[in-house]
């Protein structure tokens, strides 16, 4: 049970979001898309240039940049 930033997660690694540090519009946009504490996520893969990252949350696929993933702390096994 460890806390890491979303950027550090490997492809296909799963975890539970613990905190979303982003504020303002970025924070709002992240939360609107369902990335809130308690949400289970799984990394689906990365774009051909390794950024953005695609992940699965609440049964759909979302993409965000590594720079944004840096604001999201995830608890992984």
């Amino acid at each position: 049970m460890t806390l890491i930033m979303m950027r550090q997660m490997q492809d296909n690694q799963a975890g539970i979001i613990r905190t979303v540090k982003a504020s303002g519009e970025m924070g709002r946009r992240i939360r609107d898309m369902g990335l809130v504490p308690g949400a289970e996520i799984k990394i689906r893969g990365r774009a051909p240039l390794y950024d953005p990252v695609a992940l699965r949350v609440m049964g759909f696929t979302l993409t965000l940049r590594n720079d944004e993933a840096d604001f999201i702390e995830v608890e992984v096994q």
Binding site: E25, M26, A54, F60, T61, L62, T63, L64, R65, E68
Partner: peptide
């Protein structure tokens, strides 16, 4: 600076 990119990949 650059701004956020949060987007859905629809099925």
């Amino acid at each position: 600076e650059a701004t956020p990119f949060v987007m859905e990949l629809p099925p």
